[in-house]
């Protein structure tokens, strides 16, 4: 009974909480960039929940490609927020600088940053990223009054093998 309850709690925890990077970005941007956020969607799927889902997938009749794609994911979360007030282009610089500071303190580097009149996109990766079997990325997108934070952890090698296999199959098509 206790074991079942524990598993249920772990599963529920994995289902609803966004990951620590998303939480840190959300809290940090409110504090340091001075923007007000209203959560619209926040969903996190932790490693344990993914493991349970992947175990359950074995009993379903799925396409091999879909199965491989789903099995590569280890964890992921998405936060979508409405930014209160008018967002100006000058906010983008402040948001980017704040996000950089927050992620740098957590040992993540910004790999890509794009800012223009309409949007900001920043992609972060851990400084010690070494393995293609355990890729972690966090993406921040600010467009108009919408802020989206996505973090994911995945093994990309099977996806690459799948892409390679697909490209060989396409070459055979007349």
């Amino acid at each position: 009974m206790a074991a079942s309850l524990s598993i249920l709690c772990l599963g529920l925890t994995g289902c609803f909480d966004v990951g620590s990077e998303t939480q840190a970005l959300r809290a940090g941007l409110v504090k340091s960039a001075g923007i007000e956020l209203e959560p619209e969607i926040e969903i996190g799927i932790g490693a344990f929940t993914f493991y349970l889902a992947q175990a359950g997938l074995r009993f379903l009749d799925l396409d091999e490609e879909a199965r491989i794609a789903l099995n590569t994911l280890r964890s992921g979360d998405v936060g979508i927020y409405h930014v209160r007030g008018r967002t100006k282009t000058s906010n983008h610089s402040r948001v980017l600088a704040s996000a950089d500071k927050i992620m740098s303190a957590r040992g993540w580097d910004r790999v890509v940053g794009v800012v223009n009149r309409h949007e900001l996109v920043a992609v972060y990766s851990p400084q010690d990223s070494l393995s293609a079997t355990d890729v972690r990325l966090s993406v921040v997108v600010l467009q108009g009054n919408k802020l989206v934070i996505v973090s994911a952890r995945s093994n990309v090698e099977p996806l690459l093998d799948l892409a390679l296999k697909q490209s060989h199959l396409l070459q055979k098509v007349p």
Partner: peptide, 28 residues
């Protein structure tokens, strides 16, 4: 710093990610 108007793009890829990309590109 991003300008008040106009495009701003910054790409900064270090050897850890380049090595990973090299391992992935090996097959293709």
């Amino acid at each position: 710093s991003p300008p008040t108007s106009g495009e701003f793009v910054e790409v900064h890829i270090k050897n850890n990610l380049i090595s990973m990309a090299a391992r992935l590109a090996e097959k293709i």
